Computed example of a mutant assay.
Amino acid sequence: MSKRDYYEVLGVDKSAGEREIKKAYKKLAMKYHPDRTQGDKGLEDKFKEIQEAYEILSDSQKRAAYDQYGHAGVDPNRGGAGFGGGADFGDIFGDVFGDIFGGGGRGGRQSRARQGSDLRYNLELSLEEAVRGKSVDIRVPTLVECDVCDGSGAKKGSSPKTCPTCHGNGQVQMRQGFFAVQQTCPTCSGKGKIIEDPCNSCHGHGRKEKTKTLNVKIPAGVDTGDRIRLSGEGEAGENGAPAGDLYVQVHVREHDIFQRDGNNLYCEVPLGFTTAALGGELEVPTLDGKVKLKISPETQTGRMFRLRGKGVKSVRSGAIGDLMCKVVVETPVNLSSRQKELLQELEESMGKASSKHSPKAQGFFDGVKKFFDDLTN
């Protein structure tokens, strides 16, 4: 399948400047990053396509090659197709592909030490902790810079030497006719340097395994799915390169009473039969303690009462949600003989006017009667 135009992938014009290209890439990368797409293969492929387009268009030499030759100018697997009959392949490999492969006629580039990997830590919180915020210590196993050699990998008093095979490029070039093939330097494994006298502590790696204890401040109002980024607390980079970041992934446990939806809290409150009919006051729980809720007479089960400002304060906007209390009317159980007699007397006192006291029931049965009448007609 043919590749899409790189400018089309990023949604920019061919005249777009470096700043506009970078802005478009950041917007798309945020949207299609694997952390957000949750394993969707199609969206992962789209993210790779976006990365590839940005890698070419953000580099002036690669972009010039792409503008002149199209995908053939930046894809070595296409065998130089599309350059035109008069092109000299030796020059093309030196000028166009030199920066990509790190070799070629213009001297290439030095291999770069890799930045440390990002890490993720899953942190479980109770609803109360998430709503109020807290400070928590976490233990993270990671790779840290060797404190003996300061990350160089070489024994103290010595230093890494430039690789004599690749002369620091990290890659070597093999030519077959007018084709050039680049491969990782077998002597230094692509690092561009060799360590003749390795550090006794890290054995030449420049990094050591260590479990770090970090104090993380959890802001009030976080919810499941929120991430807290600790810059530079991931794995140490190779040979002194910057460390990665640590992402603390928040998961809030289910609560026995409350359910959370955004900044609002929801709970079900049992309501006595008599209080529902006559009205009264009811004590309901909140995260700050109990409050009185006024129940109006003739309250039906399922009615929702709103307690403003008793929800969660947003971690982003600072807005405070509400507590929504759904009342569930309870039928009396374990009644004595006298209590049953009183209920029977209540039923009899309503007589034929029971529909007046149970409007929903009367409406339901009227609908049932009409349904069967329609079936027989």
Rank of each mutant, 00 (worst) to 15 (best):
A353S: 14
G232F: 02
E209S: 09
K356R: 14
I320K: 12
E281S: 15
D45M: 07
K41C: 08
K352T: 14
G204E: 00
V222M: 02
K48A: 13
V328N: 11
S317W: 04
E129M: 07
V74F: 03
R112S: 08
R78D: 11
C166T: 03
P297A: 06
D245N: 04
G11L: 11
A236C: 05
L123D: 01
A243C: 03
K26Q: 15
A236D: 03
F305E: 09
G190R: 03
S117I: 05
R260D: 09
N377Q: 13
G79C: 09
V9W: 14
N122I: 04
S152K: 05
G70S: 09
L271N: 08
G279C: 07
G79P: 10
G116I: 04
H357C: 12
H167P: 04
S111P: 10
R253Y: 08
L278R: 15
I92Q: 07
S15P: 01
R106M: 02
R227D: 01
V172L: 06
A87E: 13
E347C: 08
G98W: 06
D226W: 06
T274F: 10
G318W: 13
F305I: 12
D147P: 07
R229G: 06
G151K: 03
C188W: 02
F258L: 08
Q68V: 04
G367N: 12
T286K: 04
T187R: 05
F47D: 05
V131A: 15
H33W: 13
C202M: 07
Y54I: 08
F97S: 06
A64T: 11
I100W: 09
T301C: 05
P76V: 09
M30N: 12
N215R: 11
D226H: 14
A24G: 04
F273A: 08
H71T: 12
V136M: 10
G168T: 04
V222A: 10
N215K: 15
A130K: 00
P160R: 02
S58Y: 10
K26D: 15
M304I: 15
G104E: 02
V74R: 01
E209P: 02
D226E: 11
V74K: 02
K352D: 15
K294A: 14
L335N: 07
L28I: 12
F372Q: 07
F179A: 10
V248Q: 08
V252W: 01
E341S: 10
V312H: 08
L57S: 03
K46T: 11
P76I: 11
F83Y: 15
E345Q: 15
I257L: 08
S111C: 08
K156R: 13
S296C: 03
V269W: 06
D5N: 15
N77F: 07
K48S: 03
V327R: 10
C188P: 05
S317T: 14
A353Y: 11
G39D: 06
D59Y: 00
F364W: 12
A65W: 06
K31C: 09
M174C: 09
H357A: 15
L265N: 00
N377E: 14
G170Q: 00
T162G: 05
P242V: 04
V269I: 10
L57P: 00
A243N: 01
E49Q: 11
G351S: 10
V74W: 06
T274L: 13
C185I: 09
M350Y: 04
G272C: 08
C166S: 04
E52D: 12
G321D: 08
V148A: 14
M324W: 09
C146V: 00
S152Q: 05
